[in-house]
Amino acid sequence: MATSERPWSAVLRYAESRQNLFGSVCGLAGVGIALTGAAGALWPLVVGGLYTAGALIAPPDRPATPEFAEEGDRLDRLRADFATLRGYLAEVELPVAARERLTALDALVEALLEPGWVTDPEHLHLIARTVRQDVPEAVDTFVRTRWWSRFSAGAEAPEEHLERQLTALHEQAVSVASALREAEAVRQQIHTRYVEERGD
Rank of each mutant, 00 (worst) to 15 (best):
E156N: 12
V118G: 09
V139C: 07
S4A: 15
P121H: 01
R132Q: 02
A64L: 09
D106C: 03
G49S: 07
L112W: 07
R79W: 04
A39W: 02
F68V: 10
C26K: 07
R77N: 01
C26M: 10
N20V: 15
L126P: 01
A155I: 10
R193I: 12
M1D: 07
P158E: 03
L113R: 14
L42R: 13
A185R: 06
T141G: 13
A138I: 06
A98P: 08
N20H: 09
V135Y: 04
D106I: 01
I57R: 07
R62S: 13
G40V: 12
R193P: 02
G87M: 10
E197A: 04
H123Y: 08
T167H: 12
E5I: 12
P136D: 12
L169D: 00
P66V: 08
Q172N: 13
A2S: 14
L102I: 08
P136C: 07
H170T: 13
I57Y: 06
Q165F: 06
L85T: 03
F82Y: 10
S178T: 15
T52W: 11
G49K: 04
E160P: 04
E159Y: 04
L166V: 10
D81T: 00
H161Q: 15
Q172H: 10
G37R: 06
L113T: 07
A111G: 05
L56A: 14
A98R: 00
R150G: 02
V143E: 06
V47Y: 07
L162M: 08
L45R: 08
W8Q: 03
P59D: 05
F68P: 04
G37H: 01
L108I: 01
R129F: 09
Q19R: 06
E171P: 00
A53N: 00
G116M: 09
V195R: 15
A179G: 04
D73L: 11
A138G: 04
T103E: 14
N20I: 13
W8F: 15
